[in-house]
Design a protein around this nucleic acid. Structure first.
Lengths: 224, 224
DNA sequence: GTAAAGTGACATCATTCATTGTCACTTTGG
DNA sequence: CCAAAGTGACAATGAATGATGTCACTTTAC
């Protein structure tokens, strides 16, 4: 794509004069990174409001204040943009939740409270991102399905790890634990989705409390 | 759409000769119904394999063995077809689950077992339908979002009703109960989705057991 | 038998959109 | 200063597809 074949001369050392010079005092790398950033932001905004389907590359570029050329500089098509947005957003979310938990390690109730608060508050504060990761990602193409599956797995495995930390004495039962974690993640996601689709009516605390109730219930049952 | 303005004569009694005659011994109503049925089946097959997006009306008609004309006879566009498929499938599923439960009323564990078995077996037996109701429906348009919300509400309310039947003495707490039920439905759906995306690897019984564990956990916690 | 209704295959039209290309203008580096 | 690189606005191209229309053929009702 960004090859510089140097047709006539057999590729001597490319002078500093060549491609990749600075512009308006900004290096090529920085300019590219800024444009990419703008596109990611614009993509989140549009995918999270208009929706992925029915959003054209033109529209994303207009929102980003860039022209199509720069879209294709960073992404090969809108699927790639969506995929990248999904990856970044979910990893941000994972980090938020991890950190929230890290501060309360050992106290199941406090951990759940902190993790869930971090989760639901993120969605409330970033409604466009929320919509992208919960709705727009679905059914785009098989690669995206796989990506979704992988992210869900990550969250489920994370939860399994936390539960095992709380019940170190308990014998591991991989399939069962994994299925349970998947279910619990689904519970959180579905509560979040309904909360979102209803316009975030209930206070965060209420949603957190109900979600916590489910986590605690299962944790208690596991302790029997 | 199917108006017969009868341009010249001011709409006298339409003779039996008029529109709507039988063809190959089949009445107009029956022919229409059969075509509609074919389209619903074809739509499920294609939406559930290729996906809703990226499926054209032409493709649906080819699968149904009909021409476009007959598509528009029954549906105004593919969104309408998807909506109808979703409605029919979820109501079938609701009925299956209701019946499964009805036979075991009063026994929480048996009820959960029966309901969940009915649910997961339906998905296993109808993978195309499964994909349509769990994946393809998402993010199509705002009306479909509302429909999804409504169906999820129905299932959640159903679950609330069951729980209240099991705990008649308990004071109702609408928002809380509703949130809990939404979470639990989400747990079942997410387990189903992962099960599906992984190609229905685990035996139904394992999935049912894990799902039941979550339901029972919450039920027990509620009993405290 | 025959005119109208029904059917099937396919054409047509208009639109949308991804992707690439053009051109005038600005900035850079020497 | 000036040639090359960078930029922005926008045109051009081609493909897909929703929706409607055409036409030859079959079936029906009388």
């Amino acid at each position: 794509m960004t090859q510089t074949p140097s047709a006539s001369k057999p590729a001597a050392k490319p002078k500093a004069t060549a491609r990749g010079r600075a512009y308006r005092g900004v290096s090529i790398e920085k300019r590219r990174a800024e444009r990419r950033e703008k596109l990611l932001r614009a993509g989140t905004t549009i995918f999270g409001s208009v929706g992925f389907h029915g959003t054209s590359v033109r529209a994303i570029c207009a929102e980003a204040g860039l022209t199509e050329r720069y879209f294709y500089e960073s992404f090969s098509n809108s699927d790639a943009l969506l995929s990248e947005i999904y990856e970044l957003t979910t990893s941000q979310l994972r980090q938020l939740v991890s950190r929230a938990i890290a501060y309360r390690s050992g106290e199941p109730d406090a951990m759940a409270e902190a993790a869930l608060t971090a989760y639901f508050e993120f969605l409330l504060d970033n409604p466009h991102s929320a919509r992208v990761i919960m709705v727009e990602i679905m059914g785009v193409n098989p690669q995206m399905d796989a990506q979704y599956r992988r992210v869900m797995d990550d969250f489920a495995n994370f939860l399994v790890a936390v539960f095992r930390g709380l019940h170190p004495e308990r014998r591991h039962h991989d399939t069962r634990d994994y299925l349970l974690a998947t279910g619990l993640i689904g519970a959180m996601v579905n509560m979040a989705m309904r909360w979102m689709l209803n316009g975030y009516r209930e206070p965060v605390a209420d949603v957190v409390q109900a979600a916590r109730f489910i986590l605690i219930s299962v944790n208690n049952q596991l302790s029997q």
